[in-house]
Nucleic acid binder design. Structure first.
Length: 217
DNA sequence: CACATGATCGCCT
DNA sequence: GGCGATCATGTGG
């Protein structure tokens, strides 16, 4: 038996090209109140922020370049639609700044940052991120790849990003003029909600995922 | 670039 | 039992 296992998932190592030093870059964490605000705003303002993970005392991270907002009980595309509250979805009801990670299609993980105060169930899906010069542009392009590249699995669902632990979000931003908008990807089953313009991305980033026609506006 | 398909399994009804 | 907040690969234009 090798490696530590929690909740059935082996701890995965982040991609080596993502190693960095948050302290040397002078990065500061977002305060709790940043995450307790309107989910759509958080989804936009989290673009450019650093999603970072500590693994064996080394930091790995990347800048978020694509997100989607999921608006809780009234959003047919959200796991919390109609107030669904099962063990899997429970982290969505936690205070802003927690993580909600789920497993889909039998092989991929998706990571969300929970928003608004405890008791609500909204979140921002992290869809893509940019690494460094030596990082392949597509390594973190798409929610599944983003989790794979950073080694994020369901063991981190419910993790508090402001606990001073191994997963954190450091401040960073993008020019409003560079932010594009579109409907969300992969939620065609959600009726009217599938057309809501809740996907945001940094236009000129090569790491943005999705079909080209959704990346124009 | 668009579209189609298979892989694969935890979660919910 | 059915179906995903996905991805890689294949085809065709």
């Amino acid at each position: 038996m090798t490696g530590k296992s929690v909740g059935g998932f082996k701890r995965a190592r982040p991609d080596a090209s993502l190693r960095f030093d948050p302290e040397a870059l002078g990065l500061r964490e977002f305060p709790r109140e940043f995450f307790r605000r309107d989910t759509t705003r958080v989804a936009q303002e989290i673009l450019g922020a650093w999603f970072a993970r500590r693994y064996r005392n080394e930091w790995f991270g990347a800048r978020i370049v694509e997100t989607e907002a999921y608006l809780g009980t009234v959003d047919a595309a959200a796991h919390s639609w109609r107030g669904r509250r099962t063990p899997r979805v429970e982290p969505m009801y936690q205070d802003g700044g927690h993580l909600y990670v789920f497993f889909v299609y039998g092989m991929h993980h998706c990571a969300n940052v929970v928003t608004r105060p405890a008791g609500t169930a909204e979140a921002v899906l992290l869809r893509a991120a940019e690494g460094f010069a030596e990082t392949p542009a597509k390594l973190l392009s798409g929610p599944g790849r983003l989790c794979a590249g950073l080694g994020i699995t369901a063991e981190f669902s419910g993790f508090d990003l402001l606990s001073g632990g191994d997963l954190r979000l450091f401040k960073g931003s993008a020019d409003n003029a560079r932010i594009g908008t579109s409907r969300r990807i992969g939620v065609d089953y959600a009726g009217e909600a599938s057309g809501w313009l809740l996907r945001f991305f940094i236009r000129d980033s090569p790491a943005v995922s999705g079909p080209a026609r959704l990346n124009r506006q």
